[in-house]
Simulated scan of single mutants.
Amino acid sequence: MKDHDDLRRVREEDPYFAGTLAKGLLILQTFVSDPRAHANSEFAAKLGLSRPTVSRLCKSLRALGFLDHDERLDRYFIGPAAVALGYPYVINTPMLATLRPAMQELADRIEGAVSVGVTMDLDVVYLETCSHEEGTLKRPGVGAVRGIVETAMGRAWLAQLDADERRTFLARTERERPEEHARCSEGVRESLAQYARRGFSVNLGDAGFGVLAVGVAARLRYGPRRLLFNCAVPGFRTRKTQLLESIGPQLVQLVGAADRQSGLR
């Protein structure tokens, strides 16, 4: 997340950059990593903004429905307009209506979860998840955010970058999220080394959620972003060999079918 100093530098480099708008959006973005209610003082401390500035921005966002305010607690919650704003993005995801039955079928077959998402800065945003009804994997749901290096789908995206872009991205992750980078670096290296041969990336639980996963980057795009697919199963009842020999190839087959249906091969 950027702070006030970052915004100032961007504004100096680009005179058309709307700093006030960016500050308001950063307040909303605070809830992505910390969804609880926040006081003005917390926004000010996290973003490096003055209390009066935060107060004005929060009142404006509240008037538009993007924030709700609890008078008793004197804290702000994310508002319903923020949910409504994301809805058009989700419903316009290419091929999603066509793919949903196949995603659900695969989730039931492996007793896990199949998700689709896109990258956003250092993260992936989940746009849909189909879960096995009797499984334990009900999350992440629509709008959930996870680090790119933490997820199999994020690692699949990394595998599509050229070497220079990948080095730049990983250096930034190491600089801005050192703990996440250290925890996942070995898994990222393994996935990148094997992606071309396997056709999918893997996560063997190093994200810390007790979940094993495979990921595939589709050729299919949503605007400038590739659609990314993730297939996750509980680590306590899935062997690595099953992940590599069965689940991974099944996800590759699903994504390949999606690419072909969209006219991409």
Rank of each mutant, 00 (worst) to 15 (best):
K2V: 06
D3S: 13
D3P: 07
L7Q: 07
R9T: 10
R11E: 14
D14K: 08
L21D: 12
L21C: 06
A22K: 06
L25C: 11
T30S: 10
F31N: 01
R36Y: 10
K46A: 14
S50T: 14
S55G: 13
S55W: 13
R62K: 15
A63T: 14
L64P: 03
G65K: 11
E71G: 04
L73E: 15
R75Y: 11
Y76R: 01
Y76V: 01
F77Y: 15
I78R: 07
A81T: 08
G86F: 09
G86I: 08
T98K: 08
T98C: 06
M103K: 02
Q104A: 05
D108V: 05
R109H: 13
E111H: 14
S115C: 11
V116C: 09
T129N: 13
K138D: 13
V145C: 07
R146V: 11
G147W: 09
T151F: 03
G154R: 02
L158R: 00
E174C: 04
R175P: 01
E176P: 02
R177I: 07
H181M: 11
G187P: 02
V188G: 04
V188F: 01
Y195C: 02
F200V: 04
S201D: 08
N203I: 04
L204T: 13
A207C: 09
G210D: 10
V211F: 05
A217H: 08
A218S: 15
R219K: 14
P234F: 08
G248F: 01
Q250W: 08
L254V: 00
A258S: 06
D259H: 02
R265A: 10
